[in-house]
Design a protein around this nucleic acid. Structure first.
Lengths: 125, 125
DNA sequence: GGTCTTGGTATCCAGATGGTGACCAACCTT
DNA sequence: AAGGTTGGTCACCATCTGGATACCAAGACC
């Protein structure tokens, strides 16, 4: 079904800017989910791969939130066997631009961010 | 001391996009504080005005967080009488751009946001 | 018939977030 | 001397967030 390459398991490794980013989108996992859906619909089990430490509960919760707010659509196929696909709606897709702006900002100011915070990497407050 | 006009008390009224914005910066008040400092340093008591419902504890908390992460500087003057001024650092100032991008996005997609979320205005998920 | 995969749900719990209300010392004004 | 302003702090409490763990039903596979 999916001809696109699978999501790389290390997509959000420790060095990912989002770990230090003072900007947040939705709940903890929302921005990562959106980025995973960037180039097409993905299945629940596909999403679990790059999000390594996410628990099913947390992922479901995040997806439901995104769905409730119209950023993501959920489609169930029972064709040959059960398949659930999550995809960005046009509204969801429109968030990619400001999300990218935040990411650009983070990578540009990465060193300053690390220098500025007293006591090394802690919380994001 | 401050020749600039004072902050308008209605700066963040109910209709302010930030109430529906799925993007967040720091804690609840951080993005509003940053916007208040946009055109120059402000005193603690000045900041309390547009932030209507903020309690001193919450404001202090937010400012300390912004300070800890290098976005805001805190300067105490004891000249004639006590005065504490908060100002954006260059790093803090650099967040204005992505913050504005998020605001532009919100105003552009305002109607879609309202339509998309089921059950009217609730939480931000 | 037993097991695997898929797509979840139920329950519990710790810690973070955020609000309320009281209080406070230093300084200024009246 | 009394009261207001400034810039906070402290204790308490409710809620939200997010993680751990266990479990589960439907279909495919062996």
């Amino acid at each position: 079904m999916t001809q696109r390459p699978p999501l790389p398991p290390d997509l959000f490794d420790e060095l990912c800017p989002s770990s230090l980013l003072p900007f947040r989108f939705g709940d903890k996992w929302a921005s990562m989910v959106v980025r995973c859906l960037e180039d097409g619909p993905r299945r629940y089990s596909e999403l679990r791969v790059p999000l390594g430490r996410v628990t099913p509960k947390a992922l479901t919760q995040s997806l439901r939130g995104l769905e409730r707010n119209g950023f993501v659509s959920r489609t169930v196929y029972a064709d040959p066997k059960l398949r659930v696909e999550y995809a960005l709606t046009p509204l969801g897709r429109s968030t990619l631009e400001p999300l990218a702006a935040a990411c650009r900002w983070a990578t540009e100011h990465w060193d300053e961010l690390l220098d500025a915070r007293e006591g090394g990497i802690s919380s994001i407050g």
